[in-house]
Amino acid sequence: MSRSATVVGAVKPKLDRPREKGTAVVNWLVRWFPLAILAITWEAAPRLGLVNPASLPPLSVVVAALGRLAMGGDLLANGLKSLFRLVCGLGLAILAGVPLGLTMAWFRPVRAVFGPLVRCLYPMPKSALIPVLLLWLGLGDLSKITLIFLGCLLPVLISTTNGVRGVEPAMIWSARSLGRSRLAALFGVALPAAMPDVLAGIRSALAMSFVLLVSSEYLMSRDGLGYLISFLGDGGAYDGMFAAVLVVSILGFAADRAFNAVSRRALAWRET
């Protein structure tokens, strides 16, 4: 009886598994077709004189400029510079934010001291620090890395703290009752259980890091992709400017997708 009941409950309509390959391709095309519309509009509007080609060069012209930037090495040099700043700033924020977040979640006195500080500083728009960091650290890498670090630290820290504090107490109690020490329970049980929150925090920090990177390179830099955009724009090379904007956008999007793919693999133990 009980067996039949579970079987009835489990019945789900999964009749034709082998979905046709052709349909999948068509679905993919249908899904992304709006992007093609956008690209065609971008190409056609300036060519037909609907918008001034000086303010919006046709897509093909922008792509050609992209090719020139890539061939000339400008894109690679500035791109690597930006990437270096991003990785350093975000990496340091993760290295500092996760342990700090864990400590705050696990030890009440630490939370009592730092909690108010975090709540006080979190709402501050971090881009307001750009001028003072320029005063302190100059035009080089250090000012950008520091800005990104400061902007990313709190999202990582807060989501780690919330994640660990949100872990079901029963999970930790059962680990403790199995003889694990408090510290072993923290690293063996609480941290893995909080991983979804930690990764979500890092994901929003990743988005923040791009914003702060580009902003600071606009305002205080002699290299990097943000600098490249404003340099080309100031010089009236709008096709190149659009190409660089496109590159930054694609990088931001790709970084998010890549991180998402990696974290989904890391969280494979979770259902769905």
Binding site: L35, S55, L213, G233, S249, F253
Partner: peptide, 26 residues
């Protein structure tokens, strides 16, 4: 949904601040 879904899913994670010079130009 069909038209905006791909645009929003690309625009959401993208650093929008990169478009600031574009709006300044326009």
């Amino acid at each position: 949904r069909w038209f905006f879904d791909p645009l929003v899913s690309i625009g959401y994670p993208m650093p929008k601040i990169a478009f600031l010079p574009v709006f300044l130009l326009w």
